[in-house]
Design a protein around this nucleic acid. Structure first.
Length: 276
DNA sequence: CCCCAGGTCGTCA
DNA sequence: TGACGACATGGG
């Protein structure tokens, strides 16, 4: 067990707001997440974060990175507030909310699955893939399956994916995995690209459009300057700002919030989700 | 039974 | 460019 004292973290909202899919809320209000090569249980005890895992190697650093605990959100929030003072209440309500740093490969598969799909079904498909091709881990007497890496999926066919309930996205996942394994798509190249080029590079994959690419950049690559525009955001921006299409929204958000626009979108999503 | 899910693709003006 | 239907699946 590891304890990180005095963290500024809203664990529940951060875990459950749609950044990751494979997590379990436990009876003691802790969360068990399946993270790359291990299973981790996270629990807040007052302001301390209690961490347990089947694998404690480098665990504290991994969780600090995963939950973005090293970033100074106070500075970000101040910058955001400077750009738009009307965000005061929203920003305050998002205290402790973090943009997670999620595993790249799994995140891309997850968000390919997310198109025209609902969260429980996305989760089910990810679990199916993991149970079939991922390594088994026993943690506190329970069985879990890690999400497989690209090598483990190299021989999986479109039909295999279909049988795991990925729906019509089966071919997209297949093609993406093939391209990664054949070095036709380089996950590390993203780090060296600016945000616009990274988006253009991501959408060269079938099944990845602008929204999915934005989620990938925001969550897996920590690009806080992208803003995933989906049906929810469109509706919200129309109702509150009278912006009627994607172009108008992009222009508005980019002009006002620039390098923090991803944070801005996550904050208003989070705020409105909790409001009702 | 119909509708929808934090979309994207292919097709046709 | 821009609009529009199709798309697998499961839950309401």
């Amino acid at each position: 067990m590891i304890k990180i004292k005095n963290v500024d973290l809203n664990l529940k909202d951060t875990i459950t707001c749609g950044q990751i899919f494979r997590f379990y809320e436990e009876d003691d209000n802790s969360f068990t997440v399946i993270l790359s090569d291990r299973v981790v249980n996270l629990k807040m005890n007052n302001n301390d974060l209690i961490i347990k895992s089947n694998n404690e190697d480098n665990l504290e650093n991994i969780i600090i990175g995963y939950l973005d605990l090293d970033r100074n959100y106070n500075i970000l929030n101040k910058e955001l507030l400077k750009k738009d003072e009307t965000l005061k209440d929203i920003i305050e309500s998002c205290k402790g909310f973090k943009i997670m740093k999620t595993p790249v490969f799994e995140t891309i598969i997850s968000f390919i699955l997310s198109q025209n799909n609902s969260v429980p079904i996305i989760k089910k498909a990810l679990d199916n893939i993991s149970e079939k091709y991922g390594d088994k881990v026993i943690f506190e007497d329970k069985k879990y399956y890690l999400f497989p890496d690209q090598k483990k999926l190299s021989n999986v066919s479109i039909d295999d994916y279909r049988n795991l309930k990925t729906g019509f996205r089966d071919k997209y996942i297949y093609e993406f995995v093939q391209k990664v394994n054949n070095n036709e798509f380089d996950l590390n190249k993203i780090y060296s690209l600016n945000t616009k080029d990274a988006l253009d590079y991501l959408i060269t994959n079938k099944g990845i459009g602008m929204k999915v690419a934005s989620c990938i950049l925001l969550f897996a690559y920590q690009r806080l300057d992208v803003f995933p525009i989906d049906t929810w955001v469109k509706k919200y921006m129309k109702e509150n700002y009278n912006l009627n299409n994607q172009k108008e929204i992009e222009k508005y958000v980019d002009e006002r919030y620039k390098e923090y626009s991803g944070l801005f979108i996550q904050y208003i999503f989070h705020y409105n989700r909790n409001k009702k």
